[in-house]
């Protein structure tokens, strides 16, 4: 241990400790540090007095301001509700057909509806609402369950194959996995389904299976998709004659659909969006161009 010595640069004394050449000065703690330490502790004590902070036994200090984060949130919610109430009432009570003809209402729909759509719908249906593999387009004039006001609104409320008790239920059966149609039979049905929208694209092989496919379709598929393959909105069965496809219209995709079946899910929104918001989205979706 060395003796305390004077540092030539600062003129201050060292502590006399030394570790492999490192020494320490005996500088007092600067006043600034003491000042800020005192100030911040005083701020903390003040906050302890004003706000809920310290636990004791089963309870905690409530603070003299009586602030509570739940009541704070409640205040903000009440304020937001009063701002929204102006248009919420209009959109809940006015007939949607009337709103659709009201330019002011529709200007609002295009603004707020876009945000609602982007936050809630676009993850599946796409920012342009044109859908994608597995998710239907909302701008193609084709509807599984119908495109009138009340039907869209109801689809939004209960969803499709969702957990809502009134949900719309639709399932394309797995004809292959369930052993209802053999591989050859599925090829025949595929040929027939292609012939419904694009008869000129059939290969020679497929054309040869058309008769068998027609028969199998009538036996297995027509109950949902209709004898003409035009689908049924009562059971959410898509139209197979219109050239629009959710899961793809090429032979491979159709065969895969026949083999494994399809159960598309749309979540229900009754618990997550207000009725006003759902009506607004209905108007927004129709405004995108798809009318019935």
């Amino acid at each position: 241990m060395t003796k305390p010595e004077r540092d030539p640069y600062t003129g201050l004394m060292t502590t006399g400790h030394e570790w492999n050449g490192i020494k320490e000065l005996m500088t007092p703690i600067p006043g600034l540090v003491k000042f800020f330490l005192t100030t911040t502790i005083l701020i903390a004590v003040l906050l302890w007095i004003l706000f809920p902070t310290w636990p004791y036994g089963p309870n905690y200090t409530k603070g003299v301001l009586g602030v509570d984060q739940r009541s704070l949130v409640q205040e903000v919610l009440v304020k937001a509700a009063s701002l929204r109430s102006v248009w919420e009432e209009q959109f809940t009570t006015t007939d949607m057909a009337i709103l659709e003809g009201d330019p002011d209402a529709m200007a609002f729909v295009r603004m707020h509806g876009e945000r609602l759509f982007e936050d809630n719908c676009s993850a599946c249906h796409g920012l342009d609402a044109a859908g994608g593999p597995g998710f239907p387009s909302l701008v193609d004039d084709q509807w599984l369950w119908g495109g009138d006001f009340e039907t869209i609104l109801e689809t939004l409320r209960v969803g499709i194959n969702a957990k809502h008790e009134d949900t719309r239920y639709a399932e394309m059966l797995a004809f292959g996995d369930e052993g209802m149609l053999s591989s050859a039979e599925r090829q025949a049905v595929t040929a027939y389904v292609i012939s419904l929208s694009r008869p000129d694209e059939l290969t020679e092989k497929q054309a040869g299976r058309l008769a068998e496919g027609t028969e199998l379709f009538a036996e297995n598929c027509a109950s949902c998709h209709g004898e003409d393959g035009a689908g049924s909105r009562d059971v959410g069965a898509p139209n197979l004659t219109d050239g629009f496809w959710i899961y793809g219209g090429d032979a491979n995709s159709i065969t895969a659909t026949l083999r494994h079946g399809r159960v598309g899910v749309m979540p229900y929104w009754e618990d997550r969006l207000t009725e006003a918001d759902r009506r607004l989205l209905t108007l927004y979706v129709r405004d995108l161009g798809a009318r019935d």
């Binding site: 903390a44 706000f51 902070t53 636990p55 200090t61 602030v67």
Partner: peptide
């Protein structure tokens, strides 16, 4: 997380800037 736990952490965080 209860409000008081948040506040307590906040006040110590404020003093923490000094050291």
């Amino acid at each position: 997380l209860p409000h008081w736990v948040q506040n307590l952490g906040m006040t110590f965080s404020i003093i923490l800037v000094v050291p």
